[in-house]
Design a protein around this nucleic acid. Sequence first.
DNA 1: AGTCTTGTATAAAACGTTTTATCACAGTAG
DNA 2: CTACTGTGATAAAACGTTTTATACAAGACT
Lengths: 340, 340
Amino acid sequence: MPRRSGVTIRDVAQRAGVSITAVSHALNDKGTLSPATRERVRKAAAELGYRADVVARALRESRMGALGLVIRPLDALGDYLPSGVDYFTRLSGAAAHAAADLGLSLMLVPDLTRSPHSPLALSLDGYIVTDPVIDDPIVTMLLERDLPMVTVGRDPQRSERIPWVATDDTGDTLRMLRTLASGGAERIAFVAGTDENSWNLDAIEAYHSWCAENGIEPVLLRVPEAAGEDGGREAAARLWAGDAPEAVYCLTGRHAAGIMRALRERGLRVPEDVEIAAASDSEHTRSAGITALDMRPSALARAAVTLLDAVTRDDPRAAELQGTLIEGAVIPRSSTRGTA
Amino acid sequence: MPRRSGVTIRDVAQRAGVSITAVSHALNDKGTLSPATRERVRKAAAELGYRADVVARALRESRMGALGLVIRPLDALGDYLPSGVDYFTRLSGAAAHAAADLGLSLMLVPDLTRSPHSPLALSLDGYIVTDPVIDDPIVTMLLERDLPMVTVGRDPQRSERIPWVATDDTGDTLRMLRTLASGGAERIAFVAGTDENSWNLDAIEAYHSWCAENGIEPVLLRVPEAAGEDGGREAAARLWAGDAPEAVYCLTGRHAAGIMRALRERGLRVPEDVEIAAASDSEHTRSAGITALDMRPSALARAAVTLLDAVTRDDPRAAELQGTLIEGAVIPRSSTRGTA
DNA sequence: AGTCTTGTATAAAACGTTTTATCACAGTAG
DNA sequence: CTACTGTGATAAAACGTTTTATACAAGACT
């Protein structure tokens, strides 16, 4: 019996010479008790080191005190992970801390679509789903069961129905494009990923509207996220096959690193001949000296946890928190010339 | 009431026309029921989509079906994380999957020493503590409360009392030293971290015994893990102040990368003039082309989860699993000359 | 005919809380 | 003296399981 700390509400009641009801009321500031009794109970509880059993409380209140974190990009990969991705450690670590600050626990929920999932997996108070794609089966499942949920990154099609927080993809994209432009580049190519999540979709849209506004012919390439640096090299080959761009903005850091390498091999100088920037900071961009965005996963996680907590307790503040955009911070490095 | 799927054991009982006891027995293969009744109950349960409520079950059985993961190196850092560290994502992701395979959930447990921890935090069936240091307060706390626990990496002083699994630090160190020696290096310096965990301590001991065996004067430097690349540069300065080594073996990848950079600045060629290797593979070693060890975090996590599960259910197999060593895999890169 | 088995099925207790409804009592007003 | 109004406390129900002990019948043995 690992869970039981041994001391129950009954022990406290006995010690304080009152009923268990009195104990419950005293400790939760409910009911009508004289201040004297309240104090006596508190003292007894403290002396015994009493902590109400979570499970019993959960059974009664139908509230677990725990949130689930579903990291979609990880589910896709099984238990192996592409190297260099520290984003998710930062995100989940921050989420766990933010949850703890609210007196909640955070559970890592691995792929819910696999048939026998662990028992607790669907019994939590609410779920954070990161980067859902179009028609994401997990989102569908949670919606069907009517379980509270927020997404990190909008659900591309159902964002009206599901509260979300996200990186400010539109703003970030424009900011980065302006940074590149301020370095003198005019023809700026854009390399996005192929996953159908809001991160890709919103940035692409922002790029198009920026091009339209500035009278620039858009040059868009989509490269699978999983293609890594090689995908970047290939993108470079295709971009430089035609009218060479003066700058390239990549969403994925590894693509950017691959492009950089390919260009160097062609004898092009960065940033003198070409500027390069990436939307997500990772070890690749850091070690290659590529200007990138810090997407601030810990701020994002904190916002998501706060929102979900409000949602689960029908707190009206949920309305304000919904749609929070976390602005990325440009980290200027040697691959760009301009100022932000 | 988010948890309740709505359908309880009573509904099933009614539908099948039996008592709730019968339902429980039928579904758990207990008691004495006729095969016919068993089948009838199963059918009714299936039709209603009944799943026993985890919380109610946990209350009765005092077993949650959930394990806690405590990542000590992360606790030290709060919710911000040094960049480039993907080891822990891989570890926790793999642990979550391994737990799921056993029908268990995995909870991320942030720093238990902070006073108001989340309620569930101390109510789980067992705990995995990674890389405990000497006199680790978390380990002490769990021991005091008599909660089942395993460590990843031995507890330096209490390993007799606490089941553990670990990387094969001794074997890995020797293997890597031999790799470096096979490239022709004789004077091999060793750079370890300052945390007092078994990873550092065991590797240092292995280094010393290897030196003794081969009649080599040990050159050991300890650099704080948090010092990162700058720590590496400084280490290089100190190492090359005296009798220059022919090879350097670093436990931490970032130290190795810093050393490499510093040496290049001094005009030394790697691997022609100096060989460099690291014990932990990270983006730093990958991008700098430094030979390193893949510590196989997913194998490690799986071993830890399996062991902990055995421990919590008093399974005798725990004895066999205890002390499992996971051998690292050398990833040869251009910073070394020899063959493994 | 009574007494054991044997095979099925269930009633009820227990797990540790929270909450609702009720109770006892003192003081106050009519 | 009765009736009401608070005030302070508690008994008991409920949450959804699992398990222990018991009940009931039908057949098998003395």
